[in-house]
């Protein structure tokens, strides 16, 4: 049923694919953080057209599956001459998909900053950029940090989807091993355990952060 020797034999191969999974998560997350903020600012724009278009795009991305978006980026973009490596396509898909969630998080953070802070920024003659960078965002971001952290963990757990566009991350590595030896039990279980080992401590740490944040705000 379960062969320890076999498990230890395949473990190094699977673990070495972990860096693909982790780097996809990190790059995708940075992309999501930046693009998410851009959505938020565009949606807040005074220009009705810009605001509505951005809002529409965000709603569309949020209401369609990540897997299908990955297929779209990987298979449709080349039709227009834009062929992407699986890693690049995967990271763009992940980043874009989660940017729409982060945009919502930023929005709620920004709305939690009272109107008085905007007024005092005007009274002290801050320009728009400085108002955001010095006054609004430093207050809007800390309370939502735990939620942002949660999305980081969620993204990490979504990276196996990138195997569907042929990225050889840990799940695909396990699948490949399974296909060549006809033993799926050990490789797939190892993948599950690795995810648990990484994401559980992270979510425990986040819960601590959340307690700290609720105490402060």
């Amino acid at each position: 049923m379960w062969d320890w020797n076999y498990a230890f034999e395949v473990l190094p191969d699977i673990a070495s694919a972990l860096w693909v999974t982790i780097s996809a998560t990190l790059v995708g997350f940075v992309l999501a953080l930046v693009v998410g903020l851009i959505w938020t600012l565009l949606i807040r724009s005074n220009n009705k057209i810009i605001s509505n278009v951005a809002d529409g795009i965000v709603k569309f991305i949020r209401n369609t599956p990540l897997l299908v978006q990955l297929y779209f980026i990987f298979y449709v973009f080349p039709q227009f001459g834009l062929s992407l490596e699986p890693f690049t396509a995967g990271v763009i898909g992940l980043g874009l998909h989660y940017s729409t969630y982060l945009s919502e998080v930023y929005r709620s953070g920004i709305e939690s900053v009272g109107p008085g802070q905007w007024e005092v920024a005007t009274a002290l003659n801050f320009d728009t950029r400085k108002t955001w960078t010095r006054i609004i965002l430093p207050q809007a971001i800390p309370p939502v940090l735990p939620v942002i952290g949660n999305y980081f963990i969620t993204m990490f757990k979504e990276t196996p989807l990138l195997s569907a566009i042929t990225l050889v991350e840990i799940l695909q590595t396990a699948q490949n091993i399974g296909a060549s030896t006809f033993r799926y039990t050990e490789p797939l279980t190892i993948v599950g355990v690795l995810f648990l080992l990484l994401s559980y401590p992270a979510s425990v740490a986040l819960r601590q952060l959340e307690i700290r944040v609720t105490e402060r705000y």
């Binding site: 990276t159 196996p160 989807l161 799940l171 797939l188 993948v191 599950g192 995810f195 648990l196």
Partner: peptide, 13 residues
């Protein structure tokens, strides 16, 4: 366990 591992991994498993 179910939150800590990935849905796709669970599906395959």
């Amino acid at each position: 366990v179910f939150r800590g591992t990935s849905l796709l991994v669970q599906l395959f498993w």
